[in-house]
Computed example of a mutant assay.
Amino acid sequence: MSKIVKFLYIIIGFIALGLGVLGIILPVLPTTPFLLLASYCFVKGSKKFEHWFKGTRLYKRHLETFVKERSMTLKQKLAILLFADVMIAIPFFILDSFIVKVLLVLIVIYKYYYFINKIKTVPEAAVTND
């Protein structure tokens, strides 16, 4: 992978990290998906940033349980699902294509199926151990 591509991954990682931190403060932004994106970008961009990010309290508090155990708190799940629903609703109401609307509804159904059946729900106390 070229240095430019790795640099872009690092830049996108820091942007996602910033949005994830904002998500902790602002209820309209979900934290976990942005931090997952940041983690992915740091893994692709630099071993140094990957190790740094995985050593932060932010990673340990919000992602470590999900990465290791494929589990989230109900609050995390709801934040992600609701944010995604809002993002999917925008093109659903703007576009006139019936096929696109059906596709978007199928995506929402699959998203809920996946979050309910494939990702375990753990109590809040299991994640917030400092």
Rank of each mutant, 00 (worst) to 15 (best):
S46T: 02
A125W: 10
V127C: 14
G23V: 12
G55R: 08
V108T: 05
L82I: 14
I15H: 07
K6W: 00
M1Q: 04
G20W: 03
L17E: 05
L8Y: 00
I94P: 01
A38E: 09
V5Y: 02
L103Q: 12
S97K: 11
G55M: 11
I107E: 05
L19E: 03
K111Y: 13
F98V: 14
Y110T: 06
V5E: 03
P27D: 09
L29P: 10
L106M: 15
S46K: 01
L8N: 05
K120V: 09
K101W: 03
R70P: 08
F93E: 06
L58C: 08
I88H: 07
K54F: 10
I90M: 10
I90Q: 05
I94H: 04
V127W: 07
V122K: 01
L37P: 04
T32S: 09
P33Y: 01
E124A: 10
L22M: 06
K3R: 04
P33I: 08
I80E: 00
K44V: 07
K3P: 00
P123D: 07
V102T: 15
L95W: 10
M72R: 08
S2I: 00
Y59G: 01
K60G: 11
K111A: 13
K47Y: 12
I109V: 13
C41E: 02
S46C: 00
I12Y: 12
T65F: 02
